[in-house]
Amino acid sequence: MSGRFAPGTFAPAPGAGRPVRMLLAHARTEASLTLRNGEQVLLTLLIPLALLFGLTLVHVIELPEPRVAAAAPRVFALAVMSTAFTGQAIALGFDRRYGVLKRLAATALPRWLLVAGRVLGCLAVVALQLVVLAAAAALLGWSPSAAGLLWTVVLVVLGTLTFGALGVLLGGALKAEVVLALANVVWLVLLFAGGIVLTTDALPAGMAEVVRLLPSAALTEGLTAVLADGTAPPASTVVTLLVWGAGAGLLATRTTKLV
């Protein structure tokens, strides 16, 4: 019996890992899984890139000149929504199906780290996306106002958290296939009717008032103010994102299931 295992091999030496190490290991796994997944890359990188080139070079939608300056904030907002909402919802739906939440919940990983690791992984992917998209925009002649950079970071983090909370709300409660369908439909609707491709000032008055209350419109409007106009974001955009994020986050703590 004893051949393979020397006595003492499994002598108990339990204990939790260091929180920083756990957080980084979890976040790195989350981020690399996203970047390795072909559909996720299509959603988070290729479609925003295509849209950036399309909006800039093809004169279908009326945009102020230089077109790339108007297109870039919209594409950034889309990239944040794709990763934090659609990507996160679908990943969570299938992770639950495969029992990974239960698996991780059974380790020494504290509950807050279980969430923090996903958030940090998501932020890392968003940062990478924006670097690639900003480089592509620069190639198209984009020169953003440097004054808006700090505000951009604030809005991107806030937007990631808000859309992430919405993604967890969706992906944590429903069956994986339902999550997949809904997350894609919501993404498409918000892209075209949620104030991203067509910003609210291009919409009819009645519709614009409603769309302005959506997180997609708020993030696009905020990023446009910061990057194209070089001003602080309107307070209404920050408040809208905060309300959506807090509401979804609170609701998600009640509805999210491990399996």
Binding site: A16, L104, T107
Partner: peptide, 8 residues
Amino acid sequence: LVAACAAN
């Protein structure tokens, strides 16, 4: 990943 969650 699971190993990173443990002390030893």
